[in-house]
Amino acid sequence: MKRIINSFKLAFPSRSCNEAFARTAVSAFVTYLDPTLDEVSDIKTAVSEAVTNCIVHGYKDTIGTVFLRATLLEDRTIVIQIKDRGCGIEDVRRAMTPAYTTGGEERAGLGFSVMEAFMDTVRVRSKPGKGTTVTLSKKIGDRREC
């Protein structure tokens, strides 16, 4: 079990204006590890995708609470859990297929593909009617060794 060096939690209503708030909060939090611009951008993009999923899909046609928890581990990994108590996903594998979307409105269907491309690991747990939890992790390079 890796030691936790820092953590924070957020809970906010599923309003789209909070997409920027959530990704900015996580990017400020990870600054402690002195990440590169690219690493910060990867994390912001993945968080933006996951939070957007809660808003567009989890709480479609309603406003619920989005829960975000971020943890820094001693091996320089950031773990981010993004959770909703919304409608859940019937078929997680299908939802993760590139370009598959139920979003309409010009959604590209790339949310999970982007998370997978930009993070080291992406785990999705979902129960129809109960909600969805996405856990993202990424190890931040240690440039002091260079």
């Binding site: 933006s48 010009e106 959604r107 790339l110 949310g111």
Partner: peptide, 10 residues
């Protein structure tokens, strides 16, 4: 400065 997959949809 920043875009996510919404930009691709756009």
């Amino acid at each position: 400065e920043f875009m996510d997959s919404s930009g691709v949809g756009l």
